[in-house]
Amino acid sequence: MIDLTHRSAAECLLRLHDERLEIEGFQKGVPRWCAGCGDNAVLTAAQRLLRDEGLRPEKTVFVSGIGCSSRFPHYMNTYGFHGIHGRALPVAEGIRLARPDLNVFVNTGDGDSFSIGAAHWIHAIRYNMRMVVMVHDNQIYGLTKKQASPTSPRGTRSNTTPRGSYLEGLNPLTVTLGVQNVSFVAQAADWIPEMLYEILQAAFHHDGLAFIRIVQRCPEWMPDNFDPWLHDPSRVQLLHHPSSLSISSSLASLFPNHLEHDPSDIHRAREIASSSDPLPVGILYHDPTVPRYDEIIRSEATHSSASVRRLLDAEFDKVAVTGGELDD
């Protein structure tokens, strides 16, 4: 692979003198989400992150599938890839493999990732390629107008389940924590922007795939869905640890329920993940040492006209027909 990270020293120097962009520099268009839609909070957090980290818009790609949440890249002034339903992760993996120099973010919905894209979700966790994955989990199919999703709580009345959905909702956190090579799992809620931002920032600095389930309100189709947690903040449990996130005093006063949790403890992480009430918010699991597939499979050899010629020559030699004469 050609390493694009160090293309030219001049380019790097230039960058040092670049002005950091203000938040407007990362904004594009007017989001078409419903008023009160939780996706707006995610967008703001992401734009803040890019500003604070001083990322270059041209070096950043937001990849999504299809759904309300997958409109996200249209509102970022970066490169964006609004692809097909369920396939954001493999697209992002291809980008990551081709371009180690880019910042890769994924925005996907609960239907997009846990239903049609479920295979890719499991395997993306296992590949552990460097990227930040934000799952906007509103527990419903928003864009297609209210059908039950895999995470809809049992009994959810939707257009395909008018008498209430039949099955218990799938718990994306416990599933993710059960996958080999999982390296970063967090849960955020759109209505706690401070935590959302800090989680996103930690995720961005994680050297692997950072999976964030964002509990997201959909006032249009699920207006009362998270009322119990909104009305009683003590039903939200903020996770903190000296090695991980700390809770500011202002946040602590709003959300009194805290739990010290060491994110290197996967067993404890799985226990915490299995609870929806209280709703854990914070970093559940973090292991920075898990190898990344994008690094493992990249070979040392460089791609060049010379190396291609050498390889073809060597391979054609092995299958060469020498003709009638024997060459000793």
Partner: peptide, 11 residues
């Protein structure tokens, strides 16, 4: 889709 991602990114 992986191949599409790589192509989109220039390879």
């Amino acid at each position: 889709t992986f191949a599409i991602g790589a192509s989109y990114a220039g390879k």
